[in-house]
Design a protein around this nucleic acid. Structure first.
Length: 595
RNA sequence: GGGGUCGUGGUGUAGUGGUUAACAUACUGCCCUGUCAAGGCAGAGAUCGCGGGUUCGAGACCCGUCGACCCCGCCA
């Protein structure tokens, strides 16, 4: 080893020891006769002091050092002179007096600051990702990610799970996301697909009798990117036999709590995690992955609004369209101009979610004041009081009225709620608010294709008591699906699977598959399921998103070592790139794009 | 496929149609024996993403294009 200690570990008790350190020059302060070098490695920073009169050779070597040069320092640890300790550094009580400095490598001037967390254009960061990753913030994130994955492996191993690898080259399926395809050289005209998740394979491992399987699995989906979505990502994928819904939920909840507390040092806001029915989540928050760090729930006032003098609400209520109120706490305290501007802004946001307009009233700050706003006059005092009581609103609140088709109101609730929370700084990145969403509908209606689409996947077991609904009212049937939301992100989702051939065969026609098509695409599954399938269920958790939320980072790229840009490109390496004609020929591929 | 924001020395920004494009920091050289956001002095560094257009005059305005980012669609 070119070092005996790392740059983060020396303390006063090492005083007097001769040590060898090696790392990067974080900073150099040249005082003339004495030079201070802050030497940095993964573990920290240690101040190296070089005195011209004591070690002339080391001093002249230190004069040539620059930022990010790689150097080895041999010297003696000593307690810093009285009054020169640096309380901001863990190693700040000591310094290493350099006897010898070996220049291991020079460096060009970096294109951005490595030694401070300042804003840098993301294109530049991506182009020099290896330098970006050298920065403290990124090292923290990448190492946190390692610790989370390590914790998961140890936790599940202790619970007698077996980690099993499944193929990356697999079979395309028509359902779900767009597949990444890989042409087969040995079978011209045929393609593998990269797995969107190891869903089928893990169920087959249950058939195979492993009972408790997990994998830290890379998954691929060829869809457009978002701040929380990359085309390739990592899932904790697991499956268990002889379990019911609450067994899987309890296991993952315990795992998440332990990760939060033991790895990140944050106690989740709610313990145990609340369980919210899908319909209630949509009614209150307009989202199946609500941010539970704040409440701001929409409240139904259809009955009151239906009796108001506002024609739109009366008409909507009569048609069965809900009228709901969303509180914007304290937002009515703004001045007239600021309030009008805010209302316009909120209306624009509401319209983007399908609203035709946005009605609002302001509550006075004191009892003698009056309710103001475009529709204030349509409500009687008693009606206003009833609304105030039902919503828990207080003086100075801005009340937003949402009324439309139920699904549209959900969408508006979601965007407004998140905007208000952002405006009021209610989403503290230090807080972790987990919550389960349960009782999802089995299917949602696909109007374009005139069929039911599974809301999770076709192997999701219906809730036992809803089995009869498959024949009578599939839209009302609930699945055994469970999703875990944290801070407005979906961080896990799973279900109990269908282990019964008759039930599975009822699902196919509902989702528009004939038995022939089902056999063609899932024959291996159906066949396997004839050989003694245990009842089983599982869950998958997006590691990237989980680490993102644990780290309090605003986007997924901050926790992926080498992420893709929004156009799916790797700016550093220049991927994707054209293939050589020879490669294409071998793969029996011709492109329609002119080279 | 659609909507939006941004693009100015290495980096981060300012620049409200009119001087030699400004500031901070980084960088280079010199000075300096207790600094740690070191300090002082001097210096170098910009075809204002690219291409058209409007104008007497464009970093700024318009159109296009490229790239990054945010969002909708999409993501079982």
């Amino acid at each position: 080893m070119l070092k005996t200690h790392n740059c983060g570990e020396l303390r006063t008790e090492h005083s007097g020891q001769t040590v060898t350190l090696a790392g990067w020059v974080n900073n150099r302060r040249d005082q003339g006769g004495v030079i201070f070098i802050d030497l940095r490695d993964r573990w920290g920073i240690t101040q190296v002091v070089v005195d011209e009169q004591v070690h002339e050779q080391a001093h002249s070597a230190a004069e040539k050092l620059r930022s990010e040069y790689v150097a080895q320092v041999i010297g003696e640890v000593r307690v810093r002179p009285e009054g020169t300790a640096n309380p901001h550094l863990p190693t700040g009580a000591v310094e290493v007096v350099a006897r010898e400095i070996v220049l291991l490598n020079t460096s060009k001037t970096p294109p951005f600051y490595i030694n401070q967390d300042s804003k840098v254009d993301e294109t530049t960061r991506m182009r020099y990702r290896y330098l970006d990753l050298r920065r403290q913030r990124m090292q923290n994130n990448i190492i946190l990610r390692h610790r989370v994955v390590k914790y998961i492996r140890d936790f599940l191993d202790a619970q007698r799970f077996v980690e099993i690898e499944t193929p990356i080259l697999f079979k395309t399926t028509p359902e779900g996301a767009r597949d990444f395809l890989v042409p087969s050289r040995l079978m011209p005209g045929n393609f593998y697909a990269l797995p969107q998740s190891p869903q089928q394979l893990k169920q087959l491992l249950m058939v195979a009798g492993y009972e408790r399987y997990f994998q830290i699995a890379r998954c691929f989906r060829d869809e457009d990117l978002r701040g929380d979505r990359q085309p390739e990502f990592t899932q904790l994928d697991l499956e268990m036999s002889f379990v019911q819904r609450d067994d899987v939920i309890a296991l993952i909840e315990e795992l998440m709590i332990q990760i939060a507390e033991n790895v990140v040092g944050k106690t989740p806001m709610y313990k145990p995690f609340p369980r919210i029915r899908y319909y209630d989540a949509m009614e209150k928050y307009g989202s199946d992955k609500p941010d539970l760090r704040y409440d701001l729930a929409a409240v139904d006032i259809t009955d009151i609004a239906g009796k108001s003098a506002f024609p739109v609400f009366v008409a909507n209520a009569a048609e069965g369209k809900p009228v709901k109120v969303l509180r914007a706490p304290g937002m009515a305290k703004r001045s007239g101009t600021a309030l009008r501007k805010l209302a316009e802004e909120l209306e624009t946001i509401a319209r983007s979610a399908g609203a035709k307009g946005l009605a609002w009233v302001t509550l006075p700050e004191d009892e003698s004041g009056e309710v103001k706003g475009p529709i204030g006059k349509y409500f009687t005092v008693d009606q206003v009081l009833e609304i105030v009581e039902r919503t828990g609103a207080e003086g100075g609140d801005l009340l937003l009225f949402l009324s439309d088709k139920r699904e549209t109101v959900w969408a508006i609730t979601d965007v407004l709620r998140r905007h208000i929370a952002a405006e009021l700084n209610l989403a503290d990145p230090e807080v972790l608010a987990f919550g389960w969403i349960i009782d999802f509908p089995m299917f949602y209606w696909n109007e374009e294709e005139k069929r039911w689409d599974p809301s999770q996947h076709m192997f999701t077991m219906p809730m036992p008591e809803d089995l009869p609904l498959l024949d009578t009212d599939p839209g009302a049937a609930r699945g055994s699906q469970y999703d875990l939301a944290c801070n407005g992100l979906e961080v896990a989702g799973g279900s109990i699977r269908i282990a019964n051939r008759e039930i599975q065969e009822k699902i196919f026609p509902l989702i528009g598959l004939t038995m022939e098509e089902a056999r063609e695409q899932f024959g291996h599954m159906l066949e396997a399921f004839e050989y003694g399938v245990p009842p089983h269920g599982g869950i998958a958790s997006g590691i990237d998103r989980l680490v993102m939320v644990l780290a309090g980072e605003p986007n997924i790229r901050e926790v992926v070592a080498f992420p893709k840009t929004q156009t799916g490109a790797d700016i550093m390496a220049g991927a994707p790139s054209p293939a050589e004609p020879k490669q294409l020929k071998e793969l029996h591929i011709r492109t329609t794009v002119d080279g």
